[in-house]
Design a protein around this nucleic acid. Structure first.
Length: 414
DNA sequence: AATGCCGGGTT
DNA sequence: AACCCGGCATT
């Protein structure tokens, strides 16, 4: 169930955050078990055990989620579906099957990565099962699934009418088992969406280590994971930290075309080589910049070093969907990069204080469709005493400037 | 209630 | 840019 923890104004999305998420890169989509209703979609339920999905991109999450769901007949719950008199039984109830005991071995992370890699695979051969079984999903107000791999979002829009290809329409009258046809549609949506495939196929993917001052680039996931695990995570008797899949948080996929994204905006000074900011103990574990456009900028001089000293893009390194994409989907997200970077630095110096999640939220502009929101950071109040506590309200003149201005304390950092 | 601080307004 | 504060989340 989604918790009632509400992000404050500092949250770019104001979305709910699960307290179960205590580490970056960890996704909590739903509760441990049971039924969760997607916010804004009282009739949309997600059932089962979908939690702790580690993904390296929203596309991976989307793919994983969609691969886990199937639709079952529940016309009573959806007036639009009820109005349809066609034989197809499609509902808005997403049923996620529980993991069986034998399936537990399948690391969800691995599943996400495999699915992510599948999005790069060549399109499935046309003309066999797809042709025979696929029927238009939107006949009679059925559910449309749209996936944008490049933007990392997917949506379920019962209201919209999906554009059907001529071949789809030609097949419209064929008698097809509902679920089977829907599954095939899902497959098509998942694996035949042209944008990501085209983009990825034309690129040479690589994986960059985000560990500070490393930046090693390898061409395989296995290689980069091994590198991170052996070089960064598992050396020097820190075996207790060598939890599997932790290395996934320390690399990002890069492509050749993304390399220019490593550069700061033209108006900003070029980012320094990946190295922790001098004098900032908070950044010891902060990954170095990678292919991303989020750049830390100081909104106020008291808040952070200038951009030439601190560039933290690690957060978005885990994403393929930039905030501009999210904005395109209708949700207006303010990108206050100073908060992201600063919070990232601070949170990673204090374990279990950050929240990084991909969640599915309704998008207003897309007609209530579900949109995968990819990144939410949240600052948990630190336990360090601040100027107010140290000096007291009566000695306000001793406070740091930030505290006097009711900003984040810069003297007693987390 | 006290605290921390984001977001936004004012100077 | 500096400064201030309403308001919200958290403790």
């Amino acid at each position: 169930m989604m918790p009632n923890t509400r992000l404050g104004k500092r949250s770019p999305f104001g979305a709910l955050v699960s307290p179960e998420t205590t580490r970056p890169g960890v996704v909590v989509a739903m509760g441990p078990q049971g039924i969760s209703r997607v916010r804004g979609h009282s009739d949309l339920k997600v059932r089962g055990n979908v939690r702790m999905i580690s993904v390296s991109s929203c596309w991976a999450l989307n793919t994983w989620l969609l691969s886990q769901v199937f639709f079952q007949c529940d016309d009573a719950g959806d007036p639009r579906a009820a109005n349809t008199s066609c034989g197809r039984s499609v509902s808005t109830c997403i049923d996620v099957p529980r993991r069986l005991g034998s399936e537990v071995d399948m690391d969800e992370l691995t599943a996400a990565m495999v699915l992510s890699s599948l999005s790069c695979s060549p399109p499935p051969p046309q003309g066999s099962a797809h042709k025979d079984t696929t029927a238009p999903l939107t006949d009679g107000g059925a559910v449309e699934l749209s996936v944008s791999g490049s933007s990392g979002y997917w949506s379920v829009d019962p209201k919209s009418s999906a554009p059907s290809s001529p071949t789809d329409e030609a097949r419209g009258g064929s008698a097809t088992p509902p679920d089977e046809g829907l599954d095939m549609e899902l497959d098509q949506v998942l694996f035949e969406e042209p944008a990501p495939r085209k983009r990825r196929n034309s690129l040479k993917a690589a994986f960059r280590c985000l560990w500070p001052a490393c930046g090693k680039v390898l061409t395989s996931v296995v290689g980069i994971k091994r590198h991170i695990r052996t070089v960064h995570l598992c050396h020097g008797g820190e075996h207790e930290r060598c939890s599997r899949s932790e290395e996934d948080f320390y690399y990002c996929e890069i492509n050749q075309w993304e390399e220019p994204h490593c550069q700061s905006p033209p108006s900003a000074p070029p980012p320094p080589p990946p190295s922790p900011p001098i004098g900032s103990a908070l950044s010891r574990s902060a990954p170095s910049p990678c292919s991303s456009f989020w750049q830390v900028q100081s909104e106020h001089s008291y808040q952070a070093p200038p951009p030439s000293q601190v560039v933290s893009q690690a957060a978005s390194c885990l994403l393929t969907a930039p905030p501009t994409t999210c904005s395109r989907q209708g949700a207006t997200f303010r990108v206050r990069s100073v908060s992201v970077g600063e919070q990232w630095l601070q949170q990673h110096s204090a374990p279990c204080r950050s929240v990084f999640l991909c969640s599915v939220v309704p998008s207003v502009a897309s007609g209530g469709a579900l949109t995968a929101v990819c990144l939410i950071f949240r600052r948990i109040r630190s336990e360090a005493k601040k100027c107010r506590k140290v000096y007291g309200i009566e000695h306000r003149e001793l406070w740091c400037t930030a505290c006097r201005w009711k900003k984040a304390c810069q003297r007693f950092l987390d």
